[in-house]
Design a protein around this nucleic acid. Structure first.
Lengths: 195, 195
DNA sequence: CATAATATGTAGTGAACGCTAAATAAGTGC
DNA sequence: GCACTTATTTAGCGTTCACTACATATTATG
């Protein structure tokens, strides 16, 4: 059997470009025209390689998730639970306001996107956020098992609180907050650590 | 001079209907067709009464702001600063998950909406959020003046922290969190109160 | 009643949307 | 070289978008 004409672009690189457009414009705001232009390809190539707009978004989201899951895992590996959480939030304060990528977190940014496509996409985003929160909770459960947290501490609730603060920080970043301002928020959040 | 044919619908009621559509679908996701259907009028009536889609959104936003500014002011009138903040956050936990209106806060929801219309709208949303945060800060400054907060307390930073938590709660609500779960978040947030 | 002024319903504008058919180009295996 | 497979280019599909011209209906004023 024959192999056919080889693809003239790098799929992962194109996916990264698409991710940035989705991140900056949102799902509905990112038109196929914007996407193909940023990706440097024509519509038929996009559809041949990625399916359709929604599937492209899902793949971009998966790629985004990979990168951040890895980073999260690394940060949570800090020796104590409290250090782990602080590392996570400090990193968020920095990366959410980093101007080399769109401000705010893609997950948080994409929740609003509403519309009818929203249902399926929202479900996927929810799963990603739950993955993140679960990893936090497991780290906190370990901290509790190691005696770092009091017996009546509730790792699940604490994980949710931290997640909530991080999501709020993303909104703040989208609204123009600076890194310094987010660092102050982190200070307060850590003040809620049970003892 | 003559007065012309009177309007056959209530402008404020139509605005409320439009608000709900924007709230549920986002700015870009809410089509003129959706809006006119919900408002019970035809496109020419919409344009005659409200200008265009963007101006309609601004007016709907103003109306939303009025309602919530009033509520916020009432809640912040609690005798102590801490009670005021707790009242605000408990109310948020309830109203963000209230199923009689779309989940989450319209301001937070609308930030993502990206695109090109975004610039002007984002500016307006930012102003609204700043109004809210300023009112919180002023209440906390009063608390400090009354000796409820330590001398080294920073009302502006505390106001930002509380705002951040509230915005995070909105994201949580959009993602499906229940009122109970948000109440637990409030518990933690209040744990960060300076003493 | 006639006129002026404003609102409404009908119908449709050009533009942008997501997406694709058809022809062509670029590879592999025989 | 020839058949086969796959990617790319060109061009345009049908639909929906925000928005509006136009004729009609409904009011106040003279």
């Amino acid at each position: 059997m024959a192999a056919g004409r080889p693809r003239s672009f790098c799929k992962n690189q194109a996916l990264d470009r698409a991710l940035e457009v989705f991140w900056r414009q949102g799902f509905e705001g990112a038109s196929i025209c914007h996407l193909t232009e940023a990706m440097g390809i024509n519509p038929p190539s996009l559809y041949a390689a990625f399916g359709n707009k929604e599937q492209l978004f899902r793949q971009a989201l998966d790629r985004y998730a990979e990168v951040y899951a890895e980073r999260r895992t690394a940060l949570l590996a800090a020796p104590t639970g409290r250090e782990a959480i602080e590392a996570l939030l400090r990193d968020a304060a920095r990366s959410l306001t980093d101007k080399s990528s769109p401000t705010g977190c893609l997950y948080v940014q994409a929740i609003a996107g509403g519309g009818e496509h929203g249902a399926c996409i929202r479900e996927m985003l929810k799963t990603k956020r739950e993955d993140s929160e679960r990893e936090l909770r497991e780290r906190l459960e370990r901290a509790k098992a190691e005696g770092e947290l009091p017996d009546d501490a509730d790792p699940a609730a604490l994980a949710r609180f931290i997640t909530t603060v991080a999501q709020g920080m993303s909104v703040q970043a989208s609204g123009g907050a600076t890194r310094k301002e987010l660092e102050r928020v982190v200070d307060f959040a850590l003040g809620a650590w049970p003892s």
